[in-house]
């Protein structure tokens, strides 16, 4: 059964965040609408995870506004964060049970999602410590997907997976988005992955974390083949401000503060 669609959006304006006196995020603003996939790219330590945790309500806002009208948000963390004393099936079922679904029905739903994610019955019966890193990631993704969320917050969801499995899960996520209009805010280090999945890509610079560049791939996801993705990624990496964000060799320092309006490309 497909849950009712909510006219959801996530709107951030002027977000600032600091750990003690160290600014982590500066003037962050973006919109995420129903059914849209937004990828956040940036070097390590640029505040992507902090931003995602703010969106999930795990950190308190310090400055700016964040409006979230999605009814069923779900999050997948960078580490799997599975309960070691529950088997994989029960870990997936956990978020469904949190909504009051009886244990039996939640387990059935978990089994279905687990199979979709390539976890067989043996893996679903296993304790988390007995699973490989990739399997643990999939259990964690299953825990987020099983509630059929309208907003998915994903923190490097496919970092521990091989390329074959990654491609399968990309298809699965896009299918999920087409079927249920799920919005996704995804952190990734993999530019090609962002180019494969995202409707828009936001690129952040570090110290403090700020969005300096926005790129909207021209083709629809279904039409993006490997050659196109490679070519587009190469083109994106030639943009001077993108090179600066990642502090690539030969790049100028990333612009700071008021001198840093966001650049766009389509």
């Amino acid at each position: 059964m497909t849950p009712p669609r909510t006219d959801g959006h996530l709107r951030a304006r002027g977000l600032e965040y600091a750990w003690r006196i160290h600014p982590v995020l500066q003037d962050i603003g973006f919109d995420l609408r129903e059914g849209e996939v937004l990828a956040l790219l940036g070097p390590s330590g640029c505040g992507k995870t902090t931003l995602l945790h703010l969106c999930a309500g795990l950190l308190d806002l310090q400055e700016g506004t964040l409006e979230n009208t999605f009814a069923r948000p779900a999050m997948m963390f960078q580490q799997p964060r599975l309960l070691p004393w529950q088997n994989a099936r029960d870990n997936i079922a956990l978020s469904l049970r949190a909504q009051g679904v009886p244990r039996g029905r939640a387990r059935e739903a978990a089994q279905g999602v687990g199979l979709q994610l390539g976890l067989d019955a043996l893996a679903l019966d296993a304790w988390p410590h007995a699973l490989s890193g990739g399997m643990q990631s999939r259990v964690s993704l299953g825990r987020a997907l099983v509630t059929r969320p309208d907003l998915l917050l994903l923190d490097e969801p496919f970092a521990a997976l091989d390329i074959g499995l990654k491609a399968q899960l990309h298809e699965l996520l896009l299918g999920f988005r087409d079927e249920q209009a799920t919005a996704m805010l995804m952190i990734t280090h993999d530019i090609m992955e962002a180019m494969r999945l995202a409707d828009r890509i936001l690129i952040m610079a570090p110290h403090p974390g700020r969005i300096l560049y926005e790129h909207a791939p021209a083709r629809r996801q279904a039409a993006r083949d490997a050659a196109w993705i490679h070519a587009e990624t190469a083109r994106l990496l030639e943009v001077p401000v993108v090179r600066s964000c990642f502090e690539l060799p030969g790049a100028a320092p990333a612009p700071r503060g008021a001198q840093a309006p966001r650049a766009f490309s389509c």
Binding site: A56, L58, S95
Partner: peptide, 24 residues
């Protein structure tokens, strides 16, 4: 703390948090 955040993100009710996350 990671499991505590996970419990919050999954919106686990307090009873479930005590029984299934903190208790064991």
């Amino acid at each position: 703390a990671g499991l505590r955040d996970m419990a919050r993100a999954c919106r686990l009710p307090w009873g479930m948090r005590l029984r299934e996350v903190y208790g064991p």
